[in-house]
C-alpha cells in the first residue's frame, strides 16, 4: 500500500513562517490599543496615595492632567524642593491654569466639553496649601469636575 509511505524518506519541510507576521501584528495592535503615550515628561515627583473608592477615567481625550509634587533631583538646584505645579511638560504657576485648560478645551468637540475632567496627580507628601490654590483656580475657571488620582489600596482590610 503506497498510501502510507508516500512521504517516507523525504526531507522535513521548513516550518512555514507565513503566519508569523499575523501573530506579531496581533500583539502589535494589542499594545497600540492599550498604549497611552507619555505626552509629558514628568519634572516633579508624583507618587499618588492609596485609596479604595476609585472611579475610572473613561475617555482619555476628555482628561487633562495637572501634576503637583516636588521637583525631581536634577531640577532642585533651580526650582528648590518646595512643591510645584506642572502643566503639560513645564513648570507653571497657578495663574497659568486658565490658559492651559483653554488649550485643552479647543481640541475637544463642543458637545463634549461639559464632560472634561481635570485629573489632579498629586504627590502624597505635599501639603494642602498648593492643592487648595489649584482647586480655587479651577473653580474660578469653571472646571468643576476633578479627579484626585490615586492607586488602588492592595489590602482590603485597611
Amino acid at each position: 500500500m503506497s498510501k502510507f509511505n508516500k512521504k517516507r524518506g523525504k526531507t522535513t519541510p521548513a516550518i512555514s513562517t507565513a503566519s508569523l507576521p499575523d501573530i506579531i501584528f496581533m500583539l502589535l495592535f494589542f499594545f497600540m490599543v492599550v498604549t497611552t503615550m507619555r505626552d509629558a515628561e514628568l519634572k516633579v515627583q508624583v507618587r499618588t496615595p492609596f485609596a479604595t473608592e476609585l472611579t475610572k477615567l473613561e475617555e482619555k481625550s476628555l482628561v487633562n492632567y495637572l501634576y503637583i509634587g516636588r521637583p525631581m533631583q536634577n531640577f532642585q538646584a533651580v526650582y528648590g524642593t518646595k512643591p510645584r505645579l506642572q502643566l503639560g511638560d513645564k513648570f507653571a504657576t497657578v495663574a497659568d491654569i486658565p490658559l492651559f485648560l483653554e488649550q485643552h478645551k479647543i481640541k475637544v468637540p463642543e458637545s463634549r466639553r461639559g464632560a472634561i475632567t481635570s485629573s489632579l496627580r498629586v504627590d502624597g507628601t505635599v501639603t494642602m496649601g498648593i492643592v487648595q490654590d489649584v482647586k480655587t483656580q479651577l473653580r474660578k475657571s469653571g472646571q468643576l469636575k476633578i479627579n484626585y488620582s490615586a492607586k488602588k489600596r492592595p489590602d482590603m482590610s485597611r
Binding site: L28, F31, T35, E53, T55, L57, L138, R139, K145, N147
Partner: peptide, 28 residues
Amino acid sequence: IAFLLLIFFLVTTTIVEDKGITVRLPPW
C-alpha cells in the same frame, strides 16, 4: 517590520491606571 513596531510600542507603553476619586467642586 512588525517586530520593530511592536518593540517601539512596548517601550513607549505605560499602562497607566487612570483611577481616582472623582469630586465635583462647587462653582466659584
